[in-house]
Design a protein around this nucleic acid. Structure first.
Lengths: 352, 352
DNA sequence: ACCTGCTTGGAGAGCGCTCTCCAAAGTGTT
DNA sequence: AACACTTTGGAGAGCGCTCTCCAAGCAGGT
């Protein structure tokens, strides 16, 4: 026998509640009650039912259960793909970056224990966004974690409007009433500025990320403010796009415009790696002639030579907190919107 | 109004097939047929129905559909956690490693286009395995991709027995009739041996991974065989556990036992990075005094100084192929078991 | 004896969809 | 005009589960 879909049933039909009920000699409802631990059921029946469950090898069908309870035990991780080009370079870059994996690891550490599944969705087009929100309203998932959205993505607003439990990692670019966890990016940048000036740098520049991403923007403002506070009203700044290559170019540009530069704060480790390469090419010794501070404390920071002094980003903890927040929100729809901001720390290595 | 679960319904009830049918003035069955493009439906009715869909803003409920079709449009990625210790260092390591992200990226590139979701499951205990297989038999997902299992995990056999469509990335340690995608690890190791000897190395050692993992084991045998073919019957070998730290230790050990060593093949890039550190500490210049070849061509290889010569592992392509294979198997249950082996290539950079 | 109040198990109506019937209508053949 | 055959839409039975009723049973108080 073959079904229309071409799928051949394996072995006999799986036991259902009905089958267990028959074996136990009770009604379907009673079995359901026992299994879900609802109401007081006579201890004798209780045992009878569990024996029948063992005998039949019954496993509840999560799909059927979800259909009526409107709960799936699944949370969707949404990442955006709207920056992708024809040959898909963005996604390749994104997933290969440990950033993604660290977030997943952090989320899973919490979700596992709660017995919640993680699903992954990439949204690109407007249509994708609409379908996603539609599916979510149908209870396709109990909630979403939203990660790494481009500057003015409408998704956060759509989720809020649809009443879907959602938590963002990194605050939304536009003000939207939505839960989020974030890093005090400005404080991190301040830490870098203080450290560079503290070790005696006279002319400190910055290599930033794209200015329309909130996280990146905060790093710029935080750095500038701290520099200004120490009397450096103006800071040479070149922006890149978070890739190693762009860091290399940016450093070259910075060096050309400011030959006397002796310190640089780079907005992520990958670009810092590029900067290190450019400095080597220019014959500048790090940290003696030019000190470099990165951001993220990714594995690349340890791998770099000299190892990068960088700003530690507790991404796993943040993701775990996002998951906790989401689970709370799912259980309690009346929860008020909240945000959690993590404080970064400076990790001192060799580059500064 | 608040439901028992604490979830407040947002707005009005979502439109169902029934609602669309009412608006279009046809039966539920007809709407279903139109939406799924099944059978010839009168073009007039066809249009009528689509208008009604637009008017009501109808979105099919995937859960309800799955319940009857036994198809979920979801594939589960299974990773193992049985090596985890108390404070969960394994998972942290695993997810932070670009390996995981690259696999996800490769899978998604295929699954997205097929409109298939990816779910993530971590299995640790025996109970977890049993529940997973049970859920899968219930059609919780249409199939699974199995990744990075410890040496003698029983999961592949369980999946085969349950008749769940499955594809492994990396062949199973025990012979089990299951689809898999793998890399010709032995060929890759040969490439490394040939390259090191070709550049004139006299005493070449190896830093391997754990010997009970098939991929790791193949790299050892491939390397040894190729070395033997060139007249080097014996190869100094120290094994690590794929972490940077273990690579550093292994290199130190290798140097101590074989001071004249002038070439080393390291079974992954992360350990190679550690080896580079140990060599620097020992005052050996790379590649002039000691040549180093890594494995994986991960982002760490480019980041390293000197940049790593390494064996390229087309992981994204392999994962994509695994996804394609799985989708085929899902559509055609009679598909015979197949495997696809990828050929690695040597990427020449500075370290050798 | 009757009514009240409480616990406990069963019956059955859905959740939203698909898909197998079956009837009605249309087409062509003898 | 009678028959067989094909096309097309509707009725309705589920998929496997939860959960709201409701009835039965059993205390205790009048």
């Amino acid at each position: 026998m073959t079904t229309a879909s071409g799928r051949v049933p394996v072995g006999e039909r799986l036991p259902t509640l009905e089958d267990v009920a028959k074996v136990a000699g009770v009604s379907r409802a009673t079995v359901s009650r026992v299994i879900n631990g609802i109401r007081n059921v006579d201890p004798q029946l209780h045992e009878l039912v569990w024996n029948a469950v063992g005998e039949t090898g019954y496993i509840p069908n999560r799909l059927a259960r979800s259909l009526v309870t409107r709960r799936t035990g699944t949370v969707t991780l949404v990442v955006s793909d709207s920056e992708a080009h024809d040959d898909d370079p963005f996604m390749g870059r994104f997933f290969a970056d440990p950033y993604f994996g660290r977030v997943v690891g952090g989320l899973m550490s919490v979700l596992r224990q709660a017995g919640v599944q993680l699903a992954l969705q990439i949204i690109g087009t407007d249509e994708g966004r609409t379908r996603l929100v539609g599916d979510l309203r149908h209870g396709q998932a109990d909630g979403v974690i939203v990660l790494s959205l481009p500057a003015h993505d409408p998704l956060p607003g759509m989720l809020t409007d649809a009443g879907v439990p959602a938590v963002m990692i990194g605050r939304p670019a536009d003000p939207v009433p939505i839960n989020y966890v974030d890093l005090a990016n400005d404080t991190g940048a301040s830490l870098a500025a203080d450290h560079l000036l503290g070790r005696g740098c006279q002319l400190v520049g910055m290599i930033s990320g794209p200015a329309d991403v909130p996280a990146s923007n905060d790093r710029i403002t935080g750095f500038r403010r701290s520099m200004a506070r120490h009397g450096h009203a103006w800071v040479p700044l070149v922006s890149g796009n978070f890739t190693q290559e762009s860091g290399e170019d940016a450093m070259a540009e910075l060096l050309k415009a400011n030959p006397a530069i002796d310190g640089v704060f780079v907005a992520n480790d990958l670009m810092a790696l590029g900067a290190l390469g450019a400095l080597r090419d220019a014959g500048r010794r790090v940290p003696d002639e030019v000190a470099v501070v990165g951001f993220d404390d990714s594995s690349a920071a340890v791998a770099a030579r000299p190892a990068l002094t960088t700003i530690r980003h507790p991404l796993e903890d943040m993701a775990a907190e996002a998951a906790r927040l989401l689970l709370c929100r799912i259980d309690d729809a009346t929860m008020r919107i909240s945000s959690v901001i993590y404080e970064p720390t400076l990790v001192r290595r060799q580059s500064a």
